[in-house]
Structures are given as C-alpha cells and as structure tokens.
Design a protein around this nucleic acid. Structure first.
Lengths: 255, 255
DNA sequence: GAATCTCTTCCATTTTCCGGAAGGCGGGCT
DNA sequence: AGCCCGCCTTCCGGAAAATGGAAGAGATTC
C-alpha cells in the first residue's frame, strides 16, 4: 500500500488505470488539461498521455481545439443504455411528471450505488424550494428522503458500513447519531415512507418511498421536496407511496 | 489487416480492446451474457472474461444475479458530464419545451459524431406523428432534418465521405443521389433551414436549423417533425431558426 | 447419460506497457 | 534580449502485464 511520493511501485492492470483517469472529471471540472488529469489521477504524465490517446480513439474522451479534454459523446451514448440510469429514468418519467404537475413541488428519482445515492432525475417545481441535487450527482445516503429509503432497504453490510463511518453533516438538523438513524430506518420500513426534515437545507423537507422490481427488491426511490412546514409529511407520504407503486408496476410490466 | 477466421494475430492495446467490448451493447440488446460479448467483439472467451472483470471493478458494467452483463451506473454518471451530451441537453431543454408547447409537434435535438447524427433529446408532441428516433440513438446524416443541417455545415472531408459512400434508403422518397444532395445542402446554407420531406417515414416531414457555439461553429441542430402536409415548411423554418438562435445565445452566454 | 451450453481458473509464453529523459512551444517576468 | 516555468509530445530498453488454449465444473436440453 506504499504509494507515497514517487518510488514507483507496480501499477496493476492497465484497463483499470485508464478508467481511473476518467474519475478526474467532475461536474465542477468537466474540462481538464492533460497535466490536470495526470496530477489528479496520480499517474505519470507520459503514461497519462498514452492512455488518454487510447480513450480518445474509442470516444471516451474528446479534445477541443483548446487542448482541453472532455468526456466524449460515445461514452454518453453508452451511458444511455444503462438500465439503472436512462432505462429507469424513461420508464419512471411519466409518473414523476404527474407527481410534479399535481403538487407543483420538486420531484426526485434516485438509486443506490455502494454507500451513496445517485440522482437519476429531478423535476424542479416552478417556484418550489431550491434543491442542491444534480442529475448524475451523488449524495450521502443518510440525509435525503430518497437516501433514507434506499438505506433502509439496503443489505445489512451496507447499513453497517454507512452507520459506522463518519456521517456527513449539512445543517444543524442533520441526524448523525447512528442509534437515532437506525430508529429512523426502522420507521421507514414500517410506514413505507421516509422523512428528511431540514437535514440537507434548513428550508426544505423531503419525503421518499421505495420502488421495487419484479422480484420485490428495492431498486430505486422517489421523493417530493417541499418547503419546510408547507405540507403534512403524512399526506406527502401517501402521494409518493402511490407514485412509487405505479412506477414499480411499470417496471414489472412490459419486458 | 488479416483477421479472417481464427489464426490468432497480435491484438494491440488492451485499453482499446476492453472498450470495444462495450460496443457489444446496444439499445436492442442492453443485457448480454459473457459469451455473447465475446462473440460479438470477436475476442477469446478467457480474455473477455478477464477484461470484463476489470470493467466491472470500475463500474463500467454491472452483472445481475442472472449473470447478465449491463452497462453500469458509473458509466452513466460519467456520461452526464459530456458537454455535447447532457451538457447541451440541459442548456437547450427550456427552449425545446417552448417549441414543443407552441407547436404540439415533435422536437428533436442532435449533434454530429463522425458521419452519423446522434440524438441528444427528443420531445414527443402528444398526438404528433410517431418518429423512429431514440435519445442516444444514431442515424444517417443524409435523411433527417437535423442530419441535413449538420452535414451542410460539416467539414468538406466529412461531406465527401458521406456522399461518396453508400447512402442509406428508408423510404421511396429518400434522396440518395449525391448531386441532388449537394444541391440540398447548398440550399440549407442559403435558407438557414433544412427540409427532409418523407425521407425517413412516408408520413413525416422534418425541418431543422443550426445551433452555433460562441465562435460561430455549428455544434448541434434542432428540428420539428410534423405530419407531411400539415404545415408549410417555410413557416416551420422560421420557428426552428428562431429557436436555434435562442439556444445558440444560451450556449454562448453564461460561462 | 451424453451432448452442448454456460462460465471460471490456471500458467508458460510473448507481447505490450512503462515512464524517465529530452526537446519543442508559448507566455510571463526582468 | 535572456531566463524560467508551465504545458505537451516522442522515444525506447528494461520490466511487467496480457494472452488464450486447455481443463473442469455446473446447468439445460435431448
């Protein structure tokens, strides 16, 4: 595990190395120079250069006239084939839109990836509370409405890992006590919906419910994000649960 | 260039090889077995197995309990960072929605990738003509409204390559004569909009216009797809041109 | 119960990868 | 001018990783 400084150790499989270069890109930095990528990935410049050329040949990255690297269109295209990404999004969208039309609030759709939530879709209600999330963005499992649902139905190992590690705090009301979180997760399983009250921002409250696949496994979650105090969580719970059921049915349905 | 049969030749850079495995996935076949992928990519089974494990470790592919491989969520996430994919989509969406609301017809947004069009967004007008396109899908440059616009403003080499190669035919009215196509492209550059009249399906007609970046380069195209005969192409041309200009301005604007 | 799928692991051979070093280019500072 | 410092690109001998046939374990089908 020695990787301090420069004393060049073995580097492992190339494929993984090349893919790790891509991790240098983020929503905040979607355009990087060669040296940026090399530094961020901690890979020698010459090597980075060679690997990026291979990624470029396939279309994983593109390079502008300015010399900056960006994520390539081919990679985006392939991404549209991800069942848990675009696939889920397309099937759920009509229902999310209904929810959005009826409530005029923010609607979110997310899945769990390891110990994080990944947002698949987000519909911003015009005039609704501003939210921090971005489609394709990650977030801690413990804070959001969707996150709590996904955590409540995650395998025990995942729950333990999340609850034993340090828990991110966003506001003064973010719950970071593992014991209290376990109780909340139990509530989610009992009531069928989660409540995140001002845990992410002090003006917002979100209520989430689980989406199941054909086999009854929890594969995603929907939530409504409203201004704190503007509606009863219980009423919202009924709404999202209904919507979640419809989406589950749609997923089980055709093919 | 000998790759007939099996006489195992040198295989080249691994990274490219691994990425080429991913090309086995398509909208029609988003879930594949190991052997499927090996066959489609023409890579020995043992090698495919090893490479897929590396792709899986990073999240490029996932494997269900059923043993089938799918495109992974991590790859989808990265895809959302592609400036010409999600980036363009997000900035253009409000304008596309306006166009959709006003006309109640299909609206499409696409970019060029090599000698193909790739559809970035598609809004289906309720009750509008059905269209064949899929977000993330590819199409020939010569047939669609968006394609004609992108081809008209593509580098000469690309135009020559497309026009000298075989031109795909979809209907009896698809234009496949290079000379006539060149004339159409010139018209597009003069008038500022393209017309594809029943070239893809016999009941539809699409009208496209170019979207420019800050430097005046054509980077994308919008189109309206309507039932043939339902509206004057010229009137539609004005609409899409207006919309295209707004989008161009939005792209040039913030950051 | 045999034939035919699927996938997984092994390991000797051979190919590719590695990355320091050197050189080019542009920009900023004195 | 001259200098430095940042970027990028190419080269190439030593070293390490990729390769894929073969063998074997399950699962289905006939």
């Amino acid at each position: 595990m020695t990787r301090r400084g420069h004393p060049t150790g073995p580097s492992g499989p190339v494929v993984g190395r090349a893919l790790r270069l891509l991790d240098a890109f983020s929503a905040e930095r979607p355009e990087l120079t060669l040296s940026d990528i090399a530094r961020r990935a901690d890979v020698p410049l010459a090597t980075t250069h060679r690997l990026l050329n291979e990624l470029r040949a396939w279309g994983a990255v593109e390079r502008g006239e300015d010399g900056l690297y960006r994520i390539g269109l081919r990679l985006w295209e392939l991404g549209t084939l991800a069942p848990r990404g675009q696939g889920l999004r397309e099937r759920a969208l009509p229902f999310l839109e209904d929810l959005s039309q009826i409530t005029r609030e923010n609607v979110q759709l997310a899945v769990r990836e390891g110990t994080k939530v990944v947002f698949i879709e987000r519909i911003a209600g015009s005039g609704a509370v501003p939210v921090l999330t971005r489609v394709g963005g990650r977030f801690a499992l413990t804070a959001t409405g969707v996150g709590l649902v996904l955590l409540a139905h995650a395998p025990t190992e995942v729950q333990d890992e999340v609850l034993s590690g340090p828990i991110e705090r966003y506001t003064s009301r973010t719950v970071t006590d593992p014991v209290r979180l376990r109780r909340m997760l139990a509530d989610v399983r009992t009531s069928g919906y989660s409540i995140s009250d001002r845990q992410v921002t002090l003006d917002a409250c979100s209520v989430g419910a689980a989406i199941h696949d054909r086999r009854g496994q929890v594969v995603a979650a929907v939530s409504l994000v409203v201004r704190h105090g503007s509606a009863s969580p219980h009423a919202l719970g009924l709404l999202v649960r209904t919507s979640a059921r419809s989406i589950s049915r749609a997923l089980a349905g055709p093919v």
